[in-house]
Design a protein around this nucleic acid. Sequence first.
DNA 1: CATGAATGAGACTTCATTCAT
DNA 2: AATGAATGAAGTCTCATTCAT
Lengths: 206, 206, 206, 206
Amino acid sequence: MNARSPEALVRDTGRRNEAVILNAALEAFGTRGFNGASMRDVAKGAGTSLSNLYNYFPSKSKLLAAVLRHANDELQHRVLRAVEEAGDDAPSQLREAVRAHVGFVVDHQVATLVATNEVRYLEPDDRTALVSHRDATQATFERIIDQGAADGAFRTPYARDAARAILSAVAAIASWYRRDGALSRGQLAEQYARYALALLEGPLPR
Amino acid sequence: MNARSPEALVRDTGRRNEAVILNAALEAFGTRGFNGASMRDVAKGAGTSLSNLYNYFPSKSKLLAAVLRHANDELQHRVLRAVEEAGDDAPSQLREAVRAHVGFVVDHQVATLVATNEVRYLEPDDRTALVSHRDATQATFERIIDQGAADGAFRTPYARDAARAILSAVAAIASWYRRDGALSRGQLAEQYARYALALLEGPLPR
Amino acid sequence: MNARSPEALVRDTGRRNEAVILNAALEAFGTRGFNGASMRDVAKGAGTSLSNLYNYFPSKSKLLAAVLRHANDELQHRVLRAVEEAGDDAPSQLREAVRAHVGFVVDHQVATLVATNEVRYLEPDDRTALVSHRDATQATFERIIDQGAADGAFRTPYARDAARAILSAVAAIASWYRRDGALSRGQLAEQYARYALALLEGPLPR
Amino acid sequence: MNARSPEALVRDTGRRNEAVILNAALEAFGTRGFNGASMRDVAKGAGTSLSNLYNYFPSKSKLLAAVLRHANDELQHRVLRAVEEAGDDAPSQLREAVRAHVGFVVDHQVATLVATNEVRYLEPDDRTALVSHRDATQATFERIIDQGAADGAFRTPYARDAARAILSAVAAIASWYRRDGALSRGQLAEQYARYALALLEGPLPR
DNA sequence: CATGAATGAGACTTCATTCAT
DNA sequence: AATGAATGAAGTCTCATTCAT
């Protein structure tokens, strides 16, 4: 298990300062909220001038859009890869998908918080785009759950809406988890994977 | 089934316009976020002048604090009453507690959203006060779960942290539920009550 | 020597709360300046309601005018009485006039400060009235100096303008004197009386 | 006799509009007092936008602090140079120091008024800094007086406190002098120099 | 005489954004 | 790609004053 440096969501992008700015924006939006954070805050965090920000992003709103796109990409990438590497049966796939999701939330708490709390401040077009992107991730979970319900592995009568419940609980981890607390990253993933399977009334270990 | 007028969180308070202002603030903070909403928005919503707001609340932040306190009081009241009226066994109590909580979230979607998203903008003291108030509600769920775990009704190995997962999922309902959608208030409550029991690996109906 | 309770400029006035309000206004204007002090400050200091202030004074500006009139009356009264009780010669009269003025400044430091710093904020009419009132006090000093210059007691070639210099220095005492400092009220009066006589190039004790 | 353009206290500072703003602030604070003058007034006087003021000074209070610092610097500079160019004996030095001080007051009446009346509105730290700066100027006078008292030139028994009295009278000139009145700049300086020497009971011309 | 509620104007300050260099 | 200076709009909050009771 590679120890990811926790909150550097964006690693590099061809343009000199883009990653620095994106990470500073993430930090600022996370700490003070989109409307509470100013472009000056972002500039200060990125160690550049206020006006230079506009050489990279045409507006504060587009900057938020870029941050959120990066976060979503990373989440989707992790979940898809986890599902690919899992077995063929729905319970295994769900288990790995949840574990991957929890991993992302823990590695990128701030990004997760920003992604859930600040989407509403996007301009309508960007918002639509992002939501459909996010729905794609949710759809991965729904597909697995549908399959498990169909082949009898998940016996809950409410399979249709269970994905939302599970994903909500997982995302909420970002709002209370402390890296120096009692639960390790791995224990947490394990725990939530079991919660998910139990909620679906599926097969549990032991 | 009593049809509660949906979003009038505060009913009356003795001071002439206080309830009107609080409800307008709730609406404004819910629609545009704490930092996105202006005191002018609140005044307009309350049908009073901007400056008159300050005869009731000394600052925007204190106004938010008051809104959140009212929301929390109502939630806590509902949950406690539900538990009192339930049977003695943990599963019944949990079931009723969840149903009551879901009911609150549906009746007061906006208040629920504001309560989860905007607490961070309180001044430290008010934040601390509110969080401890909120923890009291969570403690009700934890007590029930502990009891159920002790007497063998809930068999999950992770009883300790399950309350958080359940409450997160319930609160998140506020972010997607549409009153004119497929699920009725009652069906939703039923559904989440079962999710909760299943997650705890407790006894399910049927 | 009667020990005057220091800063209660106004003692009583037929109307129930007038003196309390005037003294509170003096305190407020002295502490924060006319424009820095609010009618709310005055009300709080007077222990009454904001709106009640307007039952006594029609505007903030008129309130200031009333305060300043009281201060000037008291000063003028003290100086005139001192001169009356002094001997017939100019040096004695000047000496007693200065001593009385210093006494007022020490007893009413705040009033002196307000009188010198805040007159400018009066409405033109009130300002004119007050200035002419004040000039009457200054005229008392000028009369004495003229007489002393005429009969050869004061030998300065600049008798014409000396009153202004002397009175400026005396009024400025209000800006630095501390009741708990090294100089007593009496020593200070003695000292400034000698400064005045020396400046006029008049006869000095010893 | 060089005709100094009267009230342009600040001449240049390296930053584009800083001097213009400082002079406009001086004018505004002088005319209407610190609390009576608005930042809009200052902006209008400086011919720039309200918000641009904040690119130069972080707050109204810091703007006042800057104005006062410039005024003090100029005063101190003038007094020190005058003393340097005077003879070695205390009376000559005092005479020149007073003449220089009077010259400053006449050339910068508004600055003098602001310096005496508005210091109180500085934030505590700036106030402390400024007061100690101002005390340095006063100390120059005290040093001369001490020396003159030691070598017998000034025979007043109250040498210790005389500087305050003299400087108060000189500063007060700013509140009544009119450039178009009877006294010329030079006559006034001459007059106050004699007042000072006489007050100290020192040697007088003629 | 006394008050609580109300208000329009205006205070300081910050904002996202643009422009000339 | 980078910056300092500039700006109009808007933010929160306070003000002196009025009015109904």
